[in-house]
Computed example of a mutant assay.
Amino acid sequence: MNRLLLSFVFLLTAIPSTTYAHKVWLLPSQTVFSGPEPWLTVDAAVSNDLFYFNHFPLGLDNLVITAPDGTHVDAENKAKGKYRSVFDLPLTQRGTYRVAVVNDGAFASWEENGKRRRWRGSAAAIESEIPADATNLRITESFGRIETFVTNGAPSLDALQPVGKGIELIPVTHPNDLYSGETATFRFLVNGQPQKDMEIVVIQGGTRYRNSQEEINVTTNEEGEFQVTWDDPGMYWIETSHQDDETKIKNAVGRRMSYAGTFEVLPQ
């Protein structure tokens, strides 16, 4: 991931997306497939409008694809253009795939020889990057998940099991079983535990052609669950964030986490 994009991704994990125009997303060519071995194509971008390529591409260095049997598989035909990245995936297994870009790192700032320094990178590398004589050191852990789900044949759940880190969406309603006029229920976990009072933003794509975002705002309950009633078919973007001080990075002042998922709602 280049330095400019890395810096922007860390910014995305630090500030709720509703406070600025840019949104980060994965856009699948479709989410429900049938046939012997169909192919999926995914666009990845940071943009001003959902889901249009008008800012810059999302890096794919941290792309993690979980197959229906729970194993990790590799994307094919990765490419990076001016405004978007793209990749393909042959759906050789039957069931549900989880396709995610997972950014795990930290941001640090300090003073060195009278000058303010800043650094962004992986949590594992941070200790070796900060000089021993650094003063006024401030470190923030950052974890972001950007994802979508696709199913070949009947939906399955093995790829959707939580890993226990950051914000994770757990389906009560399967993410590839969404239909207009129906209500879906999802659960958010933070480090493997249900998280209440998380503020969720749901926006349908096509914002370029609307005068307002027409966002839906919901909050998780005691079980970390929230519900969305889909008025219309189409692609939807779900976003949330969370901050706490439960970081395991030495000298870190806190932890900032973000989530952005793309979901397809089909007509009845």
Rank of each mutant, 00 (worst) to 15 (best):
E111W: 12
K196W: 07
K78F: 06
G153T: 04
L137P: 10
F10P: 01
R94A: 03
E182S: 13
N2I: 07
A184I: 02
S29G: 15
P155A: 05
P155T: 11
F107I: 10
V218I: 03
V99N: 00
L27K: 06
K196T: 14
S17C: 10
N136G: 11
S47Y: 01
N103Q: 15
S29Q: 08
S180D: 03
R84F: 08
V102G: 09
E182T: 14
S128Y: 14
L157D: 15
F186L: 01
E214R: 10
N136I: 01
R138V: 10
I170Y: 09
M235C: 09
K248E: 04
L266H: 09
V218Y: 05
S258A: 08
S258L: 06
L89R: 03
G121M: 10
V46Q: 08
S241W: 09
R117A: 00
P68I: 05
R145E: 04
I249A: 06
G121E: 06
G105R: 00
R3Q: 14
G144M: 11
A134C: 00
I249W: 05
M1T: 14
A106Y: 03
E215R: 14
F143D: 08
G205L: 09
V73Y: 09
Y209N: 08
L58Q: 06
F188C: 03
F53R: 01
E76F: 04
K115P: 00
Y97P: 11
G35P: 08
